[in-house]
Design a protein around this nucleic acid. Structure first.
Lengths: 198, 198
DNA sequence: GCTCACATGTAATCCGTTACATGATTCT
DNA sequence: AGAATCATGTAACGGATTACATGTGAGC
């Protein structure tokens, strides 16, 4: 049975105490979402695979007449997770797939004022992400820290700090571009005649 | 004709002066690779789609008897690229798909010494990425800066700085874990005598 | 009573990578 | 002479998202 990274996401979440597929999805949304997301359509078949492999126990755990399957990790599952943690990630082609960075990369195709607008947008988004991590993700990670799981909090802090770093970087870039724009304004408006420009 | 992010990658690279499919792939390997990679199997069909849409010109440009197709961007292509640059990225589920961060997230499943080893690995990888960006990517970006394309260099510097930031962060985390390990060593070995430590 | 959250799945589709297939040129 | 690079494509596969399909429980 071949396990992929997304299998270990599900298995790891079971280990952290998320017992239903639905709960696993919810947990990823508030914790690993930024660097590794998943969907219910992946979680359910994956849980089935993991169970077939003997990495989880499964039992009916209905809530009233609403069916629910409760999974827990087995010792085989723990060992499989540890083996994966010890293994090196084959560094795939991309690390970040970030469409916004690609936009910045090609931003020279825009006139200066619009370059500035683009950077402002990226700045705002990085700030939003930072804030979301600080107000939502870090508290959620702290909540599970008591149970001996320290690293979700570690990762949340790293994420927030990284977004903060990027936001600050965008802020400086924004200032640079603003200067460039105003210098251009002066030289265009100044000697003798003004030119209208959109 | 619906264009996807990878279409704009190809179109943008044509705009930056990469004229053959092969050249486009090479250009992405040295510039956008970390945040947006592609493969030849994507580039060639994409170039065909872009040309059908009227966003490029295409002409035979053989080198000896080795065939080569030379693409250049058209004004329609420029406008399509600008429209995409102005549009907001639908913030997809994941921003970074990073298996290593996921490993750190679940690292509590390992004994302390192995947690430390994992973080050391992540630290080293971040340093390697930083160094690669500084020695390979930034110089390559500087080389095209003269032609009025400033932002590839901007992005390269942002990338290098971000990896540096993360490497420093991992370094501190490493130090913390090392302390935790040695504290545990002491309490296990006995209060009173020191243990050899590298 | 209505809406939202909880809960589980399948089907269709899209997108990207890997592998395959072929050949010329340049460098060592 | 052989290896690495330049050059263009197609086929197969795998993995992830979106849409579809259905139903219960809790809160307002």
């Amino acid at each position: 049975m071949k396990l992929r990274p997304s299998s270990y996401l599900v298995l790891g979440m079971v280990r952290l105490g998320a017992r239903s597929g639905y709960a696993i999805k919810k947990a990823t949304d508030i914790s690993t979402r930024v660097f590794f997301s998943t969907s219910l359509a992946q979680v359910y078949p994956e849980l089935d695979r993991l169970h077939t492999a003997g990495f989880t126990t499964r039992q009916d755990d209905p809530h009233g007449r609403r069916s629910r399957l409760a999974y827990t990790i087995t010792e085989e599952g723990e060992e499989a997770l540890r083996a994966w943690l010890r293994s090196a990630a084959r560094s795939g082609p991309t690390l970040f797939r970030d469409e916004n960075l690609m936009r910045l990369f090609f931003a020279d195709a825009l006139p200066p004022e619009e370059q500035l607008m683009l950077v402002q947008r990226l700045h705002q988004q990085a700030r939003d992400a930072q804030q979301w991590m600080e107000t939502e993700v870090i508290p959620a990670a702290q909540a599970i820290e008591s149970r001996g799981h320290h690293h979700p909090h570690t990762v949340a802090r790293l994420g927030a700090a990284t977004y903060r770093f990027m936001a600050d970087w965008y802020e400086r870039l924004e200032a640079e571009l603003r200067q460039k724009c105003s210098r251009q304004d002066e030289s265009e408006t100044q000697p003798g005649h003004a030119r209208s420009q959109d």
